[in-house]
Design a protein around this nucleic acid. Structure first.
Lengths: 325, 325
DNA sequence: AAGAAAAGTGTGACCGGTTACATTTTCAAT
DNA sequence: ATTGAAAATGTAACCGGTCACACTTTTCTT
């Protein structure tokens, strides 16, 4: 492997000069620069990133910690993050936490050892006090945390209200809700949004909400139970698209028509919603933009540039497709 | 940050001794070891992975280069790889190549600069000669390459034959094929498998094959064109599940019944197939196992342990679900 | 009890960059 | 010609580990 000293020797300058050329700082005579550059090209020399990291205490790498890349929401976000990072010369470490706070914390320790510059935490399970002690620049995506940690999310309550109201406007009479895990903020917010719209309805009762844990299979069984128990249900507001897809499937398996017998609306706006028939109407978050923004914010944080806002809430967008009439 | 020298000072030993304790090699007196360990715990010391990497020329990091994590096949593989790597103390770098050989090559350069220990290349687009020059341990997944590079894949031709034959056995008469990109080995192999089974049929002609480029939306339009042009088609063997899902959707949009009017079988065995209605019959590759094996092979390669086989072809499994009668 | 082998520990070079500081050269201003 | 700032370059310490080698102490062998 060629090192900076090899280059220095070949170009008949000191390593400092080569370093100056590489980093474009300090004074270097044009002729010298040209000579060094020529040698670098000749040797096809690339500075050793690890050596650089050791001295600079940073690695141009950031980590994305998420529950499980297998869940179709996350790849879209991960892609956005990676695209953005690439633009700024960073590379991406992918960490699946499996929803385990312990694994998240272990990962953070390992990442610190590796001089990872920062972390994007998606749908994390860490306690706020853990977050404070992280000792690394962090941006949170998708889960609100009281505190001064930069956060990117979308308007969950507003979106949920909008979606539920939309179902009402479309003439659906009895709207059920599939909700996510009970310990997750977004899940509760979306539930809250649903409640805000329907709590005063004459038909409303708590039994119309079932837990699908943001999971497709659970959603299928939950939906079937729901509809069997309360046949008057004619619409479902699902807390995310994955459960929404499950609901669509469940309803179809029961032989009911979508959107006539039952209308369904999801939340998230993942592409999965466009892969099924009928296509899923949904409250879409701008997932890609959120990923890009999170990456940008983190980089600013790392590079000590000022953040205009430390809390960014994206508006949602209702995408009317085929599961509502 | 505490360094090994801080620990050495506090424990009143030399850095070498601390290093010996950390790495469990060389002679260290039990009492000394205990003392050092105590100090380490007290200081909550973690050795600096970057410094270690610099000397050892390895980083306990491997990279996964794949076309696009957004394509639902890859997250499942990525998860498997990550799980396996974790077990062995490695972390994962995620690199989206966007199918661009140039980007793949650039990534490899950056990865080498970072002392990444090895690379798993999935569905790569690199030329064989590029692969040879990589200068890093590599394992290839999903795409066959003539050469001595360790490879993990599944029996594409056999699987394709099996799937096509299965449609015939089920009594379908005119079987079309949705194929992937023309420059991709797996895509061609699956096409070949299809041909092997149907080429001699009286009804067979080349028009029954359409290109869906492994892509959902393209598959939808391709399927519609196919069926409109050749209404005698009553079954589709799709080169992958994503296109299979597209075909299901297209057929449904055309108002035809699955599996009675048209039977569909996919290839891959991704969970997406279970998310739609009716669930997709498919030729399943053991994706998770393939990912795990690729990771294991790469680690063996990195650690200079012998590989029993450099070429591993997994058997496929027909999973009969609801898109075939 | 002597000598050899094993056990225990320390010193300092090394990995390959960056940069503070020192030194030398250039050049415009006086 | 002199001066002093700017320009150009070099030296060596530093980042935080690892390990070859040297050295001392303990244990074993005969």
């Amino acid at each position: 492997m060629t090192t900076i000293r090899d280059i220095a020797k070949a170009a008949e300058v000191s390593v400092a000069t080569v370093s100056r050329v590489l980093n474009n700082n300090g004074y270097v005579h044009v002729d010298t620069r040209a000579r060094v550059l020529k040698i670098i090209k000749e040797f096809n020399y690339r500075p050793n990133a690890v050596a650089r990291s050791l001295y600079k205490k940073q690695s141009n790498t950031i980590a994305l910690i998420l529950p499980d890349i297998t869940n179709p929401f996350f790849p879209e976000l991960a892609k956005a993050v990676e695209d953005a990072l690439n633009l700024y010369g960073y590379t991406l470490m992918l960490c699946n936490s499996d929803e385990r706070p312990l694994k998240e914390r272990e990962y953070v320790e390992i990442l610190k050892q590796k001089y990872v510059d920062g972390v994007i935490l998606v749908s994390h399970t860490l306690a706020p006090e853990d977050l404070e002690r992280l000792g690394l620049p962090v941006v949170i995506v998708d889960r609100n945390v009281h505190g001064k940690i930069p956060t990117v999310l979308s308007n969950n309550i507003g979106g949920a209200r909008r979606g539920t109201r939309f179902l009402k406007e479309k003439g659906y009479k009895v709207i059920a809700h599939l909700r996510g895990p009970e310990n997750i903020v977004t899940s509760n917010e979306r539930y809250q949004g649903y409640l805000d719209v329907v709590a005063d309805e004459s038909w409303f009762h708590e039994g119309l909400t079932a837990v699908g844990n943001y999971n497709m299979k659970e959603s299928v069984t939950a939906t079937k139970e729901l509809i069997t128990k309360y046949p008057e249900i004619d619409a479902i507001f699902s807390g995310n698209d994955v459960m929404g897809v499950g609901a669509v499937k469940a309803v179809q398996e029961m032989g009911k028509q979508i959107p006539d017998d039952i209308g369904i609306i999801g939340f998230d706006g993942i592409t999965l919603g466009e892969m099924i028939y009928p296509e899923l109407t949904t409250i879409a978050q701008p997932i890609y933009e959120m990923g890009v923004l999170a990456a940008r914010m983190l980089i600013k944080l790392i590079e000590n540039k000022p953040l205009n806002t430390t809390f960014y809430e994206f508006p949602i967008k209702l995408i009317e497709r085929k599961t509502t009439r």
